[in-house]
């Protein structure tokens, strides 16, 4: 850490100034060095006094302290900073990647619970709106977890990297209001999310939260690849299944004569059970099931892990203010030692 800071200090490119005009004041720092003269005292012959080495050195110290004070203040005003630096952070809690389906099918109405009043104003909200509500409540809770989000339709798009920045995940969730489009490429979305774990050592619970209506078919090769990835990253899978208005429930096994292929979500459910990693499915029919899913995820724990996070700029002006303060302290001490009045000036 220190080393990177120092190499950054050395290279000219990583510097920056917030303002440039205070540099014009820098010549002020020459004033105390150039000005000559003394405070006049009511003494007939100051020149006659013996030279005092201590006083001479004090005067020199005073000059340099005053010069340093003005120079440091001008530099502090200019606001020097270092570009793109990394700071160390401590992360606890689980690493959670949200994988949100953004395909066109998510615009379809969401199946409400059987007992719900169909005439209620929110009776026909789209699955997308339902998913967003679920995720927003999840992002608000569990403040120790690191979270990230991948959205996918035909292709996966990274919306928020794995990190502690909840506001960013919220902003990415808000952006999904534009509506869905394209197909449901579940495998690619999961693949991108799993990719996020590959950079880091396994320090504890990793969870993939898939929010989808699951209308996708995976071929054999993709299934094997995804299975291998899940096992390598040791991530558990939580599927919050958003059932379409006329869609099948995962709890009902298709009949003997019915082909599983007719129910892609059921095929997906069966496949996920063969992943050899912990797998949980939640049918998001009512807020209670969703709350249960969120609680299960919140229970996941992790060893504290240190990780580096980039920051846009490290402000250095604080050091210059500190330097100015120290110089000022020296000036104040010398000021107290100064002879303000000739002691012999009393009536004699």
């Amino acid at each position: 850490m220190m080393q990177t800071t120092w190499t950054a200090l050395m290279s000219w490119e990583s510097w920056g100034l917030s303002r440039h005009w205070p540099l014009l004041c820098l010549p002020l720092a020459l004033l105390p060095l150039c000005l000559r003269g003394f405070v006049a005292f009511a003494h007939p012959a100051v020149q006659g006094l013996p030279e005092d080495m201590l006083s001479i050195w004090m005067a020199r110290l005073w000059r340099w302290a005053a010069a340093l004070l003005l120079a440091a203040l001008c530099l502090a005003l200019a606001g020097p900073y270092l570009h793109t630096q990394h700071i160390e952070k401590l992360g606890r809690g689980a690493h959670v990647m949200i994988v949100l389906d953004r395909s066109a099918s998510m615009n379809d109405p969401f199946a409400k619970k059987a007992g719900a009043d169909p005439r209620a104003s929110d009776a026909r909200i789209s699955k997308m709106v339902a998913a967003r509500d679920v995720l927003k409540s999840m992002v608000k809770q569990g403040h120790e977890d690191l979270m990230g989000m991948v959205t996918f339709s035909t292709s996966p798009i990274l919306a928020a990297p794995l990190g502690s920045d909840r506001g960013f995940v919220q902003a990415a969730l808000d952006a999904t209001e534009a509506g869905g489009m394209g197909f449901t490429a579940v495998a690619r979305g999961l693949g991108m999310a799993l990719d996020y774990f590959s950079d880091q050592p396994v320090t504890g619970a990793r969870a993939i939260v898939l929010v989808s209506d699951g209308g996708a078919h995976l071929d054999g090769k993709t299934q094997d690849m995804l299975r291998a990835m899940f096992m390598r990253q040791q991530a558990s899978l939580y599927w919050i299944y958003l059932r379409s208005e006329n869609g099948a429930s995962l709890k009902q096994t298709p009949g003997q004569e019915e082909s599983v292929d007719a129910y892609p979500e059921y095929a997906l459910h069966e496949y996920f059970q063969t992943l050899h990693v912990p797998y949980h499915v939640y049918e998001a029919e009512n807020p209670q099931t969703v709350a249960a899913a969120i609680q299960d995820i919140a229970r996941l724990k992790n060893k504290p892990t240190r990780y580096m996070e980039p920051v846009s700029r490290v402000d250095l002006s604080g050091y210059f203010y500190l330097m100015a303060c120290l110089a000022c302290l020296v000036l104040c001490v010398i000021d107290r030692l100064e002879l303000k009045q000739w002691p012999l000036s009393s009536n004699n």
């Binding site: 919306a159 902003a171 952006a175 534009a178």
Partner: peptide, 19 residues
């Protein structure tokens, strides 16, 4: 396609940069 709604640049710098 808007993937992230407007966020403040300093407090969300790390996430923006990585995205």
């Amino acid at each position: 396609l808007n993937i992230v709604r407007p966020v403040e640049v300093c407090s969300h710098y790390a996430a923006l940069d990585q995205t």
